[in-house]
């Protein structure tokens, strides 16, 4: 059964992933080679385990402590998810508001761009003081990290519509609300999703780094920090592995959502004109 030849445009998703299978083979080869090379290098050069443990040792530890690690992962992921949801929805609402009231947007935009360049993660210790040592501070850091890139990008998407597309709507006597609903919002989706993907990564970073400054024992950040402090490097690496899996899954989930929301976009179809 060939997964590559699909003519029906309605099957674009299946085709996208089907074609992916063949494209992924080189990447899988690279992964396997890296792991084998890593394992061998440690043997050959006699690298200390506190610098870099063997992949097999990390895998063993991951398996032995899988329940604790997944529980910690789930705990941290929830914080990231709430931060993402809060930060992104606030950003989208703000972008809609600022696109509707342009002078306000023009006045505030330089500050948003500046805020976007600020290493917000530096506020993590202060967030603990403001929002408490529990989930609150981590969610807040994730939310603020997500907020600015999503705001700046979505606002750009909403306002950089081809002027002729707006003129045409006006010639049909369309009002502002209709222009937003039928032109500005769909036109901004590529910008929005690009920023949501960035935000999904930032949300995980925010949650984990937030936890480094204290929090629940069943969280990835604390697991990594305390394991490293106790010279339990295999556990620290196994926890990092869990963070990677969760981060990548989160990113892919957003990418899938993007494909579903923008079936019309050439990039989701493997352009063929």
């Amino acid at each position: 059964m060939s997964s590559v030849v699909v003519a029906n445009p309605g099957r674009s998703l299946a085709r996208g992933f089907g074609r992916g299978a063949r494209d992924w083979i080189p990447a899988v080869v690279v992964l396997v080679a890296t792991l084998v090379g890593w394992e061998l290098a440690i043997e050959v050069f006699d690298i200390q385990r506190f610098l870099l443990p063997k992949p097999t040792a990390i895998a063993d530890r991951f398996w032995a402590e899988r329940e604790t690690l997944w529980a910690a992962g789930w705990f941290t992921f929830q914080e990231a998810l709430w931060g993402f949801a809060a930060g992104c929805s606030a950003a989208i609402a703000a972008a809609l508001l600022l696109a509707r009231f342009r002078p306000l947007g023009t006045a505030l935009m330089p500050y948003f761009i500046a805020a976007n360049a600020v290493p917000i993660i530096a506020f993590a210790p202060i967030a603990v003081a403001w929002f408490g040592i529990d989930k609150g501070s981590k969610i807040a850091i994730s939310a603020v990290l997500c907020f600015f890139p999503v705001l700046v990008n979505t606002l750009k998407g909403l306002t950089s519509v081809n002027p002729a597309q707006i003129e045409l709507m006006r010639s049909y006597a369309a009002g502002n609300v209709q222009i937003f609903r039928r032109v500005r919002i769909p036109a901004s989706l590529p910008y929005l999703f690009a920023s949501l993907k960035v935000a999904s990564v930032l949300a995980m970073i925010g949650a984990i780094v937030g936890e480094y400054f204290g929090g629940s024992l069943t969280s990835l950040g604390i697991q990594i920090k305390s394991a490293a402090a106790l010279f339990n490097f295999e556990t620290a690496w196994a926890a990092i592995f869990v963070a990677c899996i969760l981060g990548i899954s989160f990113y892919l989930a957003i990418a899938l959502l993007e494909r579903l929301a923008m079936r019309w976009h050439p990039s989701t179809r493997g352009a063929q004109t």
Binding site: A164, R182, V183, A187, W264, H265
Partner: peptide, 16 residues
């Protein structure tokens, strides 16, 4: 009153 049908130099179609 929607008395105008407009066509520009570009087709100005809505991609989505």
């Amino acid at each position: 009153d929607r008395d105008y049908g407009m066509v520009f130099q570009e087709a100005v179609l809505y991609d989505w």
